[in-house]
């Protein structure tokens, strides 16, 4: 049974169908890529899956056997489905350590203070934030460090699945390399990863399955190689590039 099953999910903003009848399934243990031009509904899809800030208008979402489409976001997080946001986000008034402690304390029910503490430290070290940074206010960190911190707070919740929304955006080349390594190691921890990226090459090197969205609909899905060979995918990408130019 897949870990995540999305069935006929839709979300509209007025007359704009941001996500339109989308279905797919993610198997435990894989890295699953989601691509699509800007505005194709990728982030909205993550929003409705995680219930943050809203669930879908229509459709069913099953995570680890439980139907989650009507549950509140914090309950979904506590089931072990964590996410990051496209823009680097942090609790600016809290220290780096406290940021991670939030994930470690509230991510899964019934956790003592000592265990949460060590889980927070472990998650921070995992993403490469050194203990000298633990006492700094999160708002003072660089973009890259804040992205790493956002990943650490997610990992501190001890998720089974992690949804990453464009982790490489606004990063430099070497930072992107580091991110790729981090995502690989996240998967090696046994966390199933769903990865949004609009740069196809990034996804090609990481994911076992690929889904391409266009204007809220599934354009193509399957093995990365066959997906990017699909003429409709080529057209959607070239089309965007032309209109952007």
């Amino acid at each position: 049974m897949p870990l995540l099953e999305v069935e006929g999910v839709s979300k509209a903003f007025g007359s704009l169908k941001a996500v339109d009848d989308v279905s797919f399934a993610v198997e435990a243990g894989e890295i699953f890529g989601i691509a699509g031009p800007n505005g194709s509904g990728k982030s909205t899809l993550f929003n409705v899956i995680t219930g943050i800030p809203f669930g879908p208008d229509k459709g069913r979402i099953r995570f680890d056997g439980a139907e989650i489409q009507a549950r509140p976001g914090n309950a979904i997080a506590r089931l072990g489905l964590a996410r990051t946001f496209q823009r680097e986000t942090s609790f600016d008034g809290l220290t780096v350590f406290e940021n991670a402690l939030i994930g470690a304390s509230y991510g899964k029910p019934g956790r003592g203070a000592t265990e949460a503490r060590s889980r927070a430290v472990e998650a921070l070290e995992f993403v490469g934030l050194s203990s000298s940074a633990f006492g700094r206010l999160a708002g003072e960190l660089s973009v890259f460090d804040r992205k790493c911190l956002m990943l650490a707070t997610a990992i501190a919740t001890k998720p089974r699945m992690l949804l990453l929304d464009e982790p490489a955006s606004s990063l430099t080349k070497p930072e992107i390399e580091t991110s790729i390594g981090l995502i690989r190691r996240t998967a090696e921890r046994g966390i199933t990863v769903v990865l949004i990226e609009h740069v196809l090459t990034f996804l090609m090197s990481l994911s076992q399955h690929l889904l391409v969205l266009n204007q809220g609909r599934v354009l193509a899905a399957g093995e990365p190689k066959s997906v990017i060979a699909d003429p409709r995918v080529v057209e959607a990408y070239l089309g965007t590039r032309r209109s952007a130019a």
Binding site: N74, A77, R83, F85, I102, Y106
Partner: peptide
């Protein structure tokens, strides 16, 4: 939203 995504009610 970020706090809720980390399980805070």
């Amino acid at each position: 939203e970020y706090a809720i995504s980390r399980g805070v009610s």
